[in-house]
């Protein structure tokens, strides 16, 4: 790991200011479970690390009616165990509870996960299907506009995610086929029954990161019934081929996970 300077921020304003002092080479540090491994491999070498993990205003889950707000520095374990959230959107608790392993879940955060936008990460699929809004220190960004390809988001330099908000749909489900070694998704599908029809988002499989599946949304248009997916053809075009799986195999996985996710919306 190359040298760096560590600074712990006590507030959002202080974090933004400390990051500015890094002159474009600074990075926020939340759980560190993506950034520190990347720094060890020298894939990242920020001049300043601004620790945001202990900022009170970035922490915790709030549920008012069906409106959910999750602070950016809330850990996967905290999301998985939140009973208020489970009451309105159990699919998101299930998703958070299956990220990596327990030790990763104790440290990794929702803000870090979506800022990183790994094409195999779980949260991007949920936020896209849940039609979530990403709240930063500067503005509010719709999930549709936030995730841009592999490891790319619409965040500007130094922009800090404060929270994620969404209205819990009546029904939602998530299923992933984890890579047996890393536990990242080889294909993960989040199905949300929104008022104006289903939103189905796929992670782990797309060549260009998380995406919504037109085919699956059309199939589930008349109800979130897993059997409706039987006749769907998920096209391998635009899906990823790598050492773990071909695009054709991923297409089959997407369909299988979509069926499981649709079935999970009933529970």
């Amino acid at each position: 790991m190359l040298e760096t300077t560590y600074a712990r921020a006590g507030s959002v304003a202080e974090a933004v200011k400390l990051n500015k002092a890094g002159k474009g080479e600074g990075k926020y540090l939340a759980g560190g479970h993506t950034l520190i491994p990347a720094m060890k491999q020298r894939l990242a070498s920020p001049s300043v690390l601004v620790d945001v993990a202990r900022i009170g205003e970035l922490k915790g889950v709030k549920v008012t009616g069906r409106k959910v707000t999750i602070g950016a520095a809330t850990t996967h374990a905290e999301v998985a165990a939140d009973e208020k959230l489970r009451a309105v959107c159990p699919a998101l608790c299930h998703l958070a509870g299956h990220i990596g392993d327990q030790h990763v879940r104790h440290r990794g955060t929702i803000g870090g996960s979506i800022a990183n936008n790994d094409p195999a990460a779980d949260y991007p699929a949920a936020l896209l299907a849940l039609d979530a809004t990403i709240v930063t220190d500067k503005r509010e960004i719709a999930a549709d506009k936030f995730f841009k390809g592999l490891f790319e988001t619409s965040l500007k330099d130094g922009e800090l995610i404060k929270a994620v908000t969404f209205t819990a749909p009546a029904k939602a489900g998530y299923a992933k086929f984890p890579n047996p070694a890393s536990r990242y998704a080889m294909a993960g599908v989040f199905v949300a029954g929104q008022k104006d029809g289903p939103r189905v988002a796929v992670t782990g499989a797309g060549d260009d990161g998380v995406f919504r599946s037109k085919e699956l949304e059309a199939a589930l248009g008349k109800g979130l019934d897993a059997s409706k997916i039987d006749g769907v053809k998920v096209p391998p075009k635009g899906l990823m081929s790598d050492i773990h799986a071909t695009a054709e195999y991923r297409a089959a996985l997407v369909k299988a996970m979509a069926k499981r996710a649709a079935a999970a919306t009933a529970s």
């Binding site: 560590y6 560190g32 479970h33 520190i36 491994p37 690390l49 327990q102 030790h103 990763v104 104790h106 440290r107």
Partner: peptide, 8 residues
């Protein structure tokens, strides 16, 4: 429980 190799 946390991985002390992934915490400064």
């Amino acid at each position: 429980a946390a991985k002390s190799c992934t915490i400064l």
